[in-house]
Each structure stands twice: as structure tokens, then as C-alpha cells.
Amino acid sequence: MQNIVKSATQSLRSALQTIQHRNDKAAEATASAVAATNRGGRSMIGSGAKIEGKLISDEDLMIQGQVKGSVTAKANEVIVGVKGKLTADIQAKVVKVEGTVSGDITGSEKVIIAKTGNVVGNIRAPRVNLEDGAKFKGSIEMDPEDMALSGLQAKSMPEPKTRPLDIDAKQVG
């Protein structure tokens, strides 16, 4: 528990250091976005946040807000929550969509569209699961052989050198 709190504090401090270098509006958006960061060892973009730009994370990410641009968490999981609305490309190890995404999704391991999910775009992953009720329009490119390959890559992946949560964002709307 102490480790989780420590990790959350470090991530929040790191993110706040990042936003000090942004303009006021961007800082406002970013601060709002990271306000609920690291709940249960996972960064979270809250439902009140609107972000435009590149979002890079080295830990699992839950998005309940609105993002326009791109989301990258190459070695981690990205969950677009039920309230999440993304007009963005997503690149992650595992991507789960419970909300709305308009953009291309790349999952090095798996992409899941939950029953509440609505996706318009192209999906590329070794394996794709659509739950009953999910809505998807676009193309899916699957190759189960890539699964083994992505597993090997994940094992040999070096420790991340970047900040835990790096948001290059500006406020929108």
C-alpha cells in the first residue's frame, strides 16, 4: 500500500513538473487530467478532462475524459472507460474500449471492444475480441503468429527511461 502511495506521489510530482513548462491553459488541462492519477497503480484521465495532443504513458492508463490526438503506452494497457471519448490513434500492449473511439488502434498483444464500446477506425493486433453489443466499423488486421513475437518483444523490452506520465496537451472546448 505504501509503495502504491509512493508511486502515485512520484508520478503526480513528475507530471506536475512537466506542466510547469506549459502555458497556463495547457497546464490547467493537464493538472485536471492528472488530478486522479495513479488510482490502483494506474494513471487516470478523469471524465472532466479534455486533452488535445500526444499522451504518452509508461504505466497502465484509464481514460474517462476526452482526448484528441494520440495515446501511446507501448508496454502497457490502455482502457477507454465508458465515459471516454477519443478522436485519437491508440498504441498499446492491450487496448480495451468501453467508450467511444474514432481512430486507429494498435495492440501488440490484444484489442478488446466491450459491449458498451463504439469504434470507427482500423484495428491492428494479433488478437481482437468483440463482446456482444460492441459496435465496430472499419478494418481489423489480425495475425495470431504475431502474438508469440510480441511476447518475446515484451520480455526483452528495456526499462522505460521516460517520465511515468507525459502529457503534451492543450485545453480544448
Partner: peptide
């Protein structure tokens, strides 16, 4: 059509590209 979960499940074991035009 839209992507039916069963169709995606069926092709899950194949190297494939599925286009769902809706």
C-alpha cells in the same frame, strides 16, 4: 455489415484482414 462478434471470433485464428463497411 457492422462487425458481428461471432465473425471476429471465427477469423481470430487466421492471418486476415477484415473490412466491415456497415
Amino acid at each position: 455489415g457492422l462487425a458481428a462478434p461471432s465473425t471476429v471470433r471465427f477469423f481470430n485464428q487466421s492471418k486476415c484482414r477484415l473490412h466491415f463497411t456497415a
